[in-house]
Design a protein around this nucleic acid. Structure first.
Lengths: 341, 341
DNA sequence: TTCAGGAATGACAGCGCTGTCATTAATTGA
DNA sequence: TCAATTAATGACAGCGCTGTCATTCCTGAA
């Protein structure tokens, strides 16, 4: 602990006291200068800042946060950072937190509720001012911890349930419905679906449900449906569409669980000599850049991911104590007509 | 500070002392049980764990880290998280840190050295056990802070310079050379280059230099070269290749600064009715999944990004104090022949 | 000249935990 | 049976900082 007390001259890092000694003022005055808080004479400020520069002093935020009971940390729990969707959300969060002086601390769950619980527990230990997590599907223990902590909680991406505190996102069920309506209005009748594992990606399932509900309301049902076990990927989308078509099923449009899968479907069409829309409609979800760069722009739904992150973080920062009642912030979505459906 | 001392019954979060009282042992014993450290009788352990569960106690890591001077935090400073390349690196880092009980704390620079300095300063304040950052291009102040901190430092992605402590990555200059050699061996002679801003992406520049050096060694030069000002993107790759070809320049192969750009180039070919390799060779860099999913697999170089993150984190964890001399860990790369060059 | 009132600074305790060094109880070998 | 270990537990101080509540020093109005 007291390393280097009477040990070799392994000079310890400078602390507040060192700066105070060097500038001839008390520790608390140095602290005030550094935090720019309270009245400080110009002369003192100058002397202190000089001493800070000279010693290369870096404040110890662990100590500061402990003493002030204010960590300026915001926990962020996401299923994956490799997924561009969540990376965009993270950017939005960062954008809103940085100017307010907050630091995001990220935990990753790999789409697993128990991992989420572990991540939340571990983040909570850092006494964050607030916590952001994806979706509503938490373990009972996660829910309890969150409640007990009394810090602010934003559940993002989805707004199809009642949040603990505030939810920020879009209605995936409604998006699914609108996809159906849009495609019906384009004249499609024989719907196919190509998706990925929705035990972990609950929101893909909600979109699917919205889609089929609306079709059912029009007296229609899917003519083909296939879901892979793992996560979405371009390759999986390509192979799965190939598989569907190989069985002889001939949907006139295929709705994919997201753009990654849809782009893969597009690639299959290219390889198989099928012309999107003309031979078969393709529809995605998310509005990724790659879809817009395809020879024919992918028809999809723009989910405002960056905005979700930004608004969630802003909502939390704006009000540090948990409000009495829950709130929902709808960031909406837009159908991107594109050229493939 | 002492909120809720004689204030309304706003029950404060349970602390070590509460658990100790409830289980009838001292605080330090509770601490030992929780950290699984030191000899504890089964009976005591059980009682303590029961009290922990009952109170819903969550240890305060701020206090723990302060007292033990060991934060179990590793700072990670990356140019971007939206870029799948760095997201993969982050996954690798996480994979290696998690089992050792370390938590990554991420800072993002937006490819800007001053932002990097800010991020490093801010991360250092959390007293991390080590810090990982991308590349060798740091400000003087960043370098000084890192040196003064005496913690371990890994510079990743690139190994074409002398590191502060340890470098983990691949030689981009050498990769550029090998790309040239490979394409020459495939019979290409009229080389074009399509790239993005390399003031921020220094490694793209190194690859470019390796490429042109090797070409020069064979008495060749680029017949066409175009670089956009901003970051790489599929759309930019598509438009830039279109621009190059529109001028009438006819390279027989185009080397792109990375896969994103190359995929864009591929899309241009599709739209323009050009058959990759047959009409024009396309070559990328990174080995992203999307390249492998294209109708013709993209010819590229596999950079082992996950491995870079993993090995960097492992190296840091393996040895907590900075070694006397620097080290370089070469994660290598592999030419992916693919079908487009 | 006196004193209220603000500006500038400081003393002190304590945030919640852990390292260090006892201390006590239980166990063992001779 | 008793010294010598070893196993459990605890007292205490202190990590580096900040909130709270003085204290000191001016300035200017009365």
């Amino acid at each position: 602990m007291s390393a280097g007390r009477d040990a070799p001259p392994q000079r310890a890092l400078p602390v507040l006291a060192d700066v105070a000694r060097l500038s001839g003022v008390s520790e608390i005055t140095v602290s005030r200068v550094i935090r720019n808080k309270g009245p400080i004479s110009d002369k003192t400020r100058e002397r202190v800042l000089h001493a800070v520069a000279e010693t290369g002093y870096v404040p110890n935020r662990l100590a500061g946060a402990l003493a002030s009971a204010d960590s300026m940390l915001v926990g962020v729990v996401l299923p994956s950072v490799t997924n561009i969707v969540f990376a965009d959300v993270l950017r939005g969060i960062h954008e809103a937190l940085a100017p307010a002086g907050y630091q995001p601390v990220v935990g990753v769950t790999g789409y697993d509720a128990d991992e989420e619980e572990r991540a939340v527990r571990s983040l909570l230990a850092w006494q964050p001012a607030a916590i952001i997590l994806a979706g509503f599907e938490h373990t009972e223990a996660t829910r309890r911890m969150l409640a007990a902590s009394r810090i602010r909680v934003a559940e993002i991406m989805d707004i199809d349930a009642t949040p603990i505190d505030v939810a920020v996102g879009l209605s995936h069920r409604s998006a699914g419905r609108d996809i159906a309506r849009y495609l019906l209005s384009r004249g499609y009748r024989r719907f196919g679906y190509v998706g990925h594992d929705w035990d972990s990606d609950h929101r893909a399932r909600l979109r699917f449900e919205g889609l089929t509900e609306e079709l059912a309301a029009q007296g229609l049902a899917l003519v083909a449906e296939r879901r892979i076990a793992g996560p979405s990927s371009t390759l999986a989308g390509r192979e799965t569409l190939a598989g569907v078509l190989a069985t002889g099923e001939r949907p006139d449009v295929v709705v994919f669980s997201n753009d990654d899968m849809a782009v893969g479907g597009y690639f299959h069409c290219l390889a198989a000599g099928l012309v999107p829309r003309h031979d078969i409609g393709l529809f995605g979800f998310n509005g990724l850049e790659i879809g817009a760069a395809l020879p024919l722009r992918l028809s999809t739904v723009r989910s405002n991911r960056f905005l979700i992150g930004k608004l969630a973080a802003e909502a939390l920062v704006a009000r540090p104590d948990r409000p009495a009642d829950t709130a929902i912030i709808n960031t909406g979505y837009e159908i991107e007509a594109g050229e493939t459906a």
